[in-house]
């Protein structure tokens, strides 16, 4: 465990906590894409099936359980508990255009042709694009609350920090996972436009609003 990995994980944890707090305190899921959150629930579920087959550490197990659990709570909040505040009219990204190609790619390009490995690969690929419905929603409504921006920044930073972690692990541990690295690059690149807006607007006290 290096510093980049640890800070990355903490950033991921923070993103999830920010999102849950936003929903709980404001009693609203306005501005949050339920589709992205469903995709994240699928990502965690398919990635952490190794909880049943291997034990790495208490840290590893508790983080995995936390990520799976909170992803379902988030989906529950959006589609049940705070459903009246969910803005489904603006959450219109077609997720089948992500799931189908990503599923096909995981089937074709993986480290090992076994069920768990293919599902792990699927989750890595899917995570890299799972934020698209959310980014689509922000661009469609043309704005994002500050708290939603903080959430997106923490969530995007997590994979960017993992990239540094992989560079570190490559040099000091000889560890290299091409699938994770390529997907991690794609994922981080998708956030670049948002990062720019976050730094130039949100950090200066303005909320993100895009010209119509």
């Amino acid at each position: 465990m290096n510093i980049f990995r640890l800070v990355g994980d903490m950033s991921h944890l923070l993103a999830i906590i920010i999102l849950l707090m936003k929903m709980w305190k404001s009693r609203s899921v306005a501005g949050i894409s339920g589709k992205s959150q469903i995709l994240f629930a699928i990502v965690f579920t398919t990635r952490y099936l190794d909880l049943f087959t291997s034990f790495v550490s208490i840290y590893n197990t508790s983080m995995k359980v936390f990520f799976i659990g909170t992803s379902y709570v988030t989906v529950y909040f959006i589609y049940q508990h705070f459903k009246p505040t969910y803005d489904s009219n603006h959450d219109t990204f077609r997720v089948e255009f992500l799931i189908v190609p990503v599923g096909g790619l995981a089937f074709l390009v993986n480290h090992e042709f076994s069920l768990l490995e293919i599902l792990w690969t699927f989750s890595i690929y899917l995570e890299s694009v799972a934020i698209l419905p959310q980014l689509f929603m922000v661009s469609k409504t043309g704005e994002a609350e500050s708290i939603t921006s903080h959430y997106l920044f923490a969530l995007g930073s997590y994979r960017a920090l993992y990239l540094l972690n992989w560079i570190y692990r490559y040099y000091f541990e000889g560890f290299f996972d091409l699938i994770a690295v390529v997907a991690g690059c794609v994922q981080t690149i998708l956030y670049c436009d948002f990062f720019y807006l976050y730094i130039t607007k949100v950090l200066k006290g303005k909320k993100i609003s895009l010209p119509a």
């Binding site: 991921h12 790495v56 590893n60 990520f67 480290h111 993992y162 972690n165 290299f176 996972d177 699938i179």
Partner: peptide, 10 residues
Amino acid sequence: KGEVEGKDEL
């Protein structure tokens, strides 16, 4: 230890 491993990461 190579590519198939890596599940220590989240």
